[in-house]
Simulated scan of single mutants.
Amino acid sequence: MSRGGVFCVEGQWHRNLDEEGSVLPTLELLERLRRIRYIHKDVATADELRYFLGRWALRQYADYHVGFFAMHGEPGRLWLTDQHSVDLMDLAAPLAGRCDGRRLYFASCSVMRFSDAELQDFLRTTGAAMVCGYTRNVDWVESAAFETVLLDVMVNSSRHDGAEQRLGSTRWAALAASLGFRVMYLNGKTWRPRLPVSAHTGS
């Protein structure tokens, strides 16, 4: 079993109580493959989100070094429900100075379509090593396939830029680029995948 783990907070995707949709199957698959361990919590309000983030930041959960935020989004903002949202700096407050070396993934449409300066402010406040996510609206199935690989490498790579190395490869770059995937590092570097030459030429 992998020594590392994922801490996931998931918003409420649907207005109707009888609708189903969750990232749990992805987490369960990776756990069954012995690639990760995980903790999963549902959140519907900003207070719930702050509570669970505060708990995650405790030293006893240091091995769960990947934070996975699964919820609707827009540039710089996460939607917990159709009525409750938080912006990234609201999210940074309960994590201020408590995310040293942690890696954060926003599985939310368009959240990373945000200025470099504001993302750097978020990273400096939290101390996280990196943050990644999407600059576009994404398809559920495509993003689920993508994040299966992304979470594996974020948990198991010894390098903070492990996702960049894996997802910039010929096999994954086209999908990563089509999703508008973006990474920002604490040192100020930003990365986006480049489409393979064949994708540009149509060959």
Rank of each mutant, 00 (worst) to 15 (best):
L151S: 03
R113W: 04
T170G: 07
A144F: 05
S157E: 11
S115L: 04
A173L: 12
R171G: 02
L167R: 01
A163N: 05
T126Y: 04
M112E: 06
E142D: 12
G162W: 14
L95F: 06
A145K: 05
R136I: 02
L151V: 03
R136S: 05
R171H: 08
V155L: 04
L167I: 06
A163V: 13
D161T: 13
D161G: 07
V131R: 06
R124T: 10
F106S: 05
L175V: 07
S85C: 14
S110F: 02
L123D: 09
M112P: 04
D139Q: 07
L123V: 07
F106N: 01
L95I: 13
A96L: 06
E147D: 15
D139E: 10
R124Q: 11
A128P: 09
D116W: 12
T125I: 07
D87V: 13
A173F: 08
W140T: 01
D139T: 03
C99P: 12
L88E: 00
L167M: 14
Q165C: 11
D87I: 11
L167T: 02
A107H: 14
V111T: 09
M89H: 14
M112W: 04
R113A: 11
E142V: 02
Q120E: 10
H84P: 04
L104W: 10
T125Y: 03
M112H: 04
N137V: 08
S169E: 14
T170I: 08
W140N: 00
S108R: 04
R98N: 11
L151Y: 02
M89G: 10
R102D: 12
L104Q: 04
V141H: 00
R124F: 08
M89Q: 15
D90K: 09
E164I: 13
L150T: 04
A92Y: 10
T148K: 06
R124Y: 09
Q165P: 02
E164C: 14
A117E: 15
T126N: 05
C109I: 00
L123K: 06
L167H: 07
A173T: 04
V86M: 09
G133R: 00
L167S: 05
G97Y: 08
S169I: 13
T126R: 04
M130D: 02
E147S: 05
A144I: 01
A96K: 14
D161F: 09
A173I: 05
N156F: 09
D90L: 06
L104S: 06
S158D: 15
N156C: 08
S157D: 12
L167D: 04
H84R: 15
H160F: 13
C109F: 01
S85Y: 11
R136E: 01
R166S: 10
G101P: 12
Y105L: 11
G127F: 03
A174N: 05
D121G: 11
T135K: 07
W140L: 00
T125N: 06
L88R: 02
S157Q: 06
G133I: 03
P94H: 08
S115G: 11
M89S: 15
G162P: 08
A93N: 11
A174R: 07
L91Y: 07
V86A: 01
